[in-house]
Design a protein around this nucleic acid. Sequence first.
DNA 1: TTAGTTAGTGATAGAGTGCTAACTAAAGGA
DNA 2: TCCTTTAGTTAGCACTCTATCACTAACTAA
Lengths: 204, 204
Amino acid sequence: MRIRKTAEVRQAEIIDAALRLAARLGPERLTTEAIADAVGLTQPGVFRHFPTKQKLWEAVAARIGSMMETRWSKAQSPEDSPSSQLRAVVVAQLRLIQATPAIPAILFSRELHTQNEALRKYFLQLLGRFHGLVAEFVGRAKEVGEVRRDLEPDDAAYLIVSLVQGLAVRWSISARAFDLTGEGSRLLEVQLSGFRRARRGGRR
Amino acid sequence: MRIRKTAEVRQAEIIDAALRLAARLGPERLTTEAIADAVGLTQPGVFRHFPTKQKLWEAVAARIGSMMETRWSKAQSPEDSPSSQLRAVVVAQLRLIQATPAIPAILFSRELHTQNEALRKYFLQLLGRFHGLVAEFVGRAKEVGEVRRDLEPDDAAYLIVSLVQGLAVRWSISARAFDLTGEGSRLLEVQLSGFRRARRGGRR
DNA sequence: TTAGTTAGTGATAGAGTGCTAACTAAAGGA
DNA sequence: TCCTTTAGTTAGCACTCTATCACTAACTAA
């Protein structure tokens, strides 16, 4: 009854299970036993592949990071306008969160940050990269006249990043009761409309 | 050496301690022992005042709720313009979060929500009331011409609430490395500038 | 075959953690 | 002054969870 797999495969399975379960139980209630059950191992078997639980969390964080980077780069298509690419990147991020609800749960977990400083810094950098990406598109949109001249790209990017995070918070507290990507796209348009130069003096 | 206080006073002390400690340890790592130490009781002494830990969390939630409502109503001054009052309410919220960093920690805690459905619903309602308040001010600002005619107050309010929450997330992950209220006020102005009717066709 | 490597198991240590039960002592009115 | 009420203590139960350790069995190359 002992199913044996390579360490590489098992590690991936364990990380996957951790991501799935962290969304349901909350990151702090995620036990090595629960992971082991989901993967089909005994509890100590998990420690064959990760020396401590902290290291497991770091691997999970790295997986989240690489998922994000992958989607961001796939969402960009240089032939499109800056604002279109901006939309695509934000929508990609929303879709990823909707498909992997553990992401906000882990990202917002105070416990993980106080207990694991490396993790906190990693997520801070990751958020910083998302912000930088968004700011770059806003900057280019400004150059081609898609947004107001007086708009600071960094500030605009903060508003957009906040839009995603605030929405993720509401989605999480609402027990995921609405379509994150749909609602996000809608609100993004409202946000972008405020960034544009008003035509006709602002009366519709 | 036995210091004896009325139940009312002790309950307040326990809730205060829980709020202080939840910010430092994270809500899920907050133990009854840590609370007892902070308050000057033995661990079982806490259970004299709250029958279960869940009930304690509910009391903490109620305290957060009443703190918010108090600040919101104090921030309103009917003689001011709608947009000024909007600013005041948002700044009051930011100040409260900065003074009580446990609020985002508790609000964003996946564990508390999965384990205590009543708590999740309470926070959902609380957020809903904040959204409603903001939406009302946007609506009035619209009536007096302080914001664009084509702006949906509900949507604008979602953007503003997200601004606060997204900022709280960043503040928390950054280890509270910046001035929440200052940064929030600055970004709120950027947001509001996008809600206004542009003068002179949008060129500064 | 055989020997070495490595994934996985059973048993269990050891440190918490919520909560209960029985007892104690301070407060305050009759 | 006694007596009731009630805040607080000591001792400990039941359970959870990470991590260790000795051992086993599957793969792999000589």
